[in-house]
Design a protein around this nucleic acid. Structure first.
Lengths: 240, 240
DNA sequence: ACACCTTCTCTACACTGTAGACTTTACGCG
DNA sequence: CGCGTAAAGTCTACAGTGTAGAGAAGGTGT
């Protein structure tokens, strides 16, 4: 068979040279399309038109592959640590991350879960970059480093929590227009869950972006009020 | 063999009748001791001194088993939805949940992740009970149902985020007393991660409870200021 | 042409969840 | 007691997983 049978189906995977980027991109595509469980070595190999074992050149094992996907996704974030308006920048990042999560919902469990089993210092650098940059932003804004860390934790914690919350608002039957049924709430025993059932219609329309904004606003202004900030005039200029 | 060879090792698993509670308890024990990956049907069967297939009487499949473990853990939470001091109650719940997470760190990925793949109405009831009860608490405190939901989301979101944050502060080498090395931060390239490396010592001592408290305070008081609350005197008394 | 290193493939192994048929046990009823 | 029925537990088997280890194919420099 001299001519490659590449014509069949959507196997656009010509046999070009592999590379880490190509492998990770294919992995992300697979996860986006079919979920985390679909990302097996064999399946990914098939997607790339290669033997599954060839993937081990580009990721030491499956866990490393998952880390790679996390890193790839985090690269979609753009943070400007030099923005003078730190509050605006944090709000911007928050929305960016939110949209990223909505774009890649199947990756979110990864983002949230992998760090729990990897000590800070051993994580993929790409996943630590946002942390470093936000710290920079806050320190440049005049917060003492310890306070910057403090603030980062509250900010990022809330942000993650919000994203998890929003992604949970899953729908059972999108064709149903009765709120109770859309959310599957009719299954709950009315005696035990009166409030939840009553809130069906309210649950159904949820403005994630607005709630995120409000929460961040409250947190940031509240925290800023408690923390010491060195005014710009009395600060030493940043070196470099 | 008339006398059971039960003497060997820690096989305290006499061949008593199984039950859902027993199975789930053993599963939780296994997860606590060796992590989520160790919870395989075969391993759990061995722990209970039974054929792995017998477990399917008490959980339809592995996913259902995981849901059961989640439920079991949530049962450790005690919420008092009738507490007249709603802020105090929410603070109390927050600390309770935090301690629960520290007690069962390996279960946390489950708590966070399972709802992402299960529509609200189809979740195990045990995992929805906290939601219902907190809504009750807030509505009884005078918030309009929609506002109560609003508040719940911000509160629970922050809480989850905080827990994830705190559990991430993992340590590479607990015997090392130099902060940089304890956290494995020496591995990070100094050029790219100056702030993070500089914060080593601060990262090392982290008062999770205090930060949680402060965040919750800021969030709750901030939200309460924005939301409409019906004063008690003008409310109709709760029926039942 | 040769050697060499990287990239890719093949085979094999231990382990996973679980379907389906079977055996054992428990229990109510004559 | 004995029998019948249902529940509880077991056995076997299968398709799928990650990945170790040996080998083949391909590219590059001399």
């Amino acid at each position: 068979m001299p001519s490659p049978k590449n014509s069949d189906a959507e196997a656009a995977a010509e046999k070009t040279r592999l590379s880490r980027q190509v492998v990770l991109a294919a992995a992300l595509e697979l996860v986006d399309a079919e979920g985390l469980d679909a990302l097996t070595m064999r399946r990914l190999g098939q997607q790339l038109n290669r033997d599954p074992m060839s993937l081990y050149r580009y990721a030491a094992n499956r866990a490393a592959l998952l880390d790679g996907v996390s890193e790839l996704v985090f690269d979609e974030l753009s943070i400007h640590p030099k923005d003078p308006d730190w509050q605006a920048q944090l709000r911007y990042i928050a929305h960016d991350l939110r949209l990223l999560a909505l774009r890649h919902p199947n990756v979110v469990p990864l983002l949230v879960t992998r760090p729990l089993s990897t000590p800070l210092g051993l994580r993929p650098l790409g996943t630590l970059r946002p942390l470093e940059q936000i710290l920079s932003l806050l320190i440049d804004a005049g917060f003492a480093p310890a306070d910057a860390l403090h603030m980062y934790r509250a900010y990022y914690g809330f942000l993650y929590g919000h994203i998890l919350n929003e992604l949970q608002e899953f729908i059972v039957d999108p064709d149903e227009n009765e709120a109770l049924l859309r959310l599957g709430l009719h299954r709950l025993p009315p005696k035990d869950f009166p409030q939840l059932r009553a809130l069906g219609p309210v649950l159904a329309d949820y403005d994630g972006a607005a709630e995120l904004d409000q929460g961040i606003d409250i947190l940031l202004s509240g925290l800023a009020a408690h923390l010491s900030r060195v005014p710009e005039s009395t600060r030493e200029p940043a070196q470099g």
